[in-house]
Design a protein around this nucleic acid. Sequence first.
DNA 1: CGATACATTGAGGAGGGTCAATCCGGGTGG
DNA 2: CCACCCGGATTGACCCTCCTCAATGTATCG
Lengths: 225, 225
Amino acid sequence: MLALIDTCQATVTARGRLCACLEPSALGRLRAVTADARLPAGEEVFVEGQDAEYLYGLRQGAVMLTHRLADGRRQVLSFLFPGDVFGFTAGSRHMCSAIALQRSSFCRIPLSALNTDSQLAARLHQIARACLADALDHAVRLGRMSAKERVADFLFRMWRRMGEPDELQFPFSRVDIADYLGLRPETVSREIASFRRNGLIGPLSSDGIMSVLAPSSLQKFALPR
Amino acid sequence: MLALIDTCQATVTARGRLCACLEPSALGRLRAVTADARLPAGEEVFVEGQDAEYLYGLRQGAVMLTHRLADGRRQVLSFLFPGDVFGFTAGSRHMCSAIALQRSSFCRIPLSALNTDSQLAARLHQIARACLADALDHAVRLGRMSAKERVADFLFRMWRRMGEPDELQFPFSRVDIADYLGLRPETVSREIASFRRNGLIGPLSSDGIMSVLAPSSLQKFALPR
DNA sequence: CGATACATTGAGGAGGGTCAATCCGGGTGG
DNA sequence: CCACCCGGATTGACCCTCCTCAATGTATCG
């Protein structure tokens, strides 16, 4: 019965838990219209400019939203984890691409469901407002924080987002992180090395796992909330 | 009758025109719950951390949304003009402050109206998604564009937003622009001076009015859309 | 007319970008 | 099993964009 109430095997997050916030009848309607899908790492859920037909709820894996300029420069707009909902658009077309960073599974919610199910629509719009808040926070980071602050804030938020583990294992590359933070990969590397020298994080093991030694020191650089 | 259909004296914009998109009966319900207000320049519509009770529709004037870091650094998140709707929140509290840049008038829409009027709610959520798109665009600018590109893009978008006039008259200071673009006011001044030397904009008259001579040249720096 | 606030301009410096070399782990094939 | 290669991460050297600090210009207001 619990499994029925929350069909997404999602970690509990402020933004996520689409299913958990719906009453059983609404959940039934949701299940009736959603379809599941899987993608291997590197594949696109949707691409910029494509007609938007669905919203997406990430069940397992990780996804990033990216926007590309004409000359190839890329900005990563968001990293998404299980429980997160994505695919919101202003008009009829996607304004960014969604790329699976790992083998991922997600459900697709037809946009038409927004017109027919007001409780579902209200919940999804609440999530859209949370995405707006995230985007504005990100603008603050990109506009007003130094490279060191951006990297520390990023490590801290990822650490918290992943359940405050002793060891962080990222599904994304240095280039992805750099494109998210508005920096170059070399700068990200240097800042991480600096934190390691200062004992805020442990030595990097061979497979990219890093231990978080002093989360509170990282948090000093982070945006509140 | 036209006045009844659109009670906001707002310029036509993609994001705005809340009233114009509502059918007459919904508009009547909207008018029944909204209240009007005015503010002089410099006053706050709401401040960060305050409990959110309303959404706001700007009728006349100009407003900016700002976020402050603990040490005083400020990021301007958005400049708003007649027709724009603002005050969207993720939780129960405002995540930014809204400051009138000019004497402004606006209407207040109680959040409770979102629960009782689904057509109004749908329209406001559509606007919220447009705000999300704007915020993501802004992240691209802040993360991946040079100072020259940011200023050119800003001038071009303001020029277009204000109806492509021959002369631009801003209601905000260089500091406001700099805090919006993630730059220092000196840098904004220098880039504007550079555009003036290159003939993209005319000489600055004493009262801050600038003429736009080569919008298409400015547009080359701008983000599409 | 001075005082204040804001914009502009200049000189110098620092943070982060650019380019290149090196390292390292994993896959591939002999 | 090992040599080779390849992609990503790291590190170093150098440079450029943008910031910092200060001086000057300009408009508004008492």
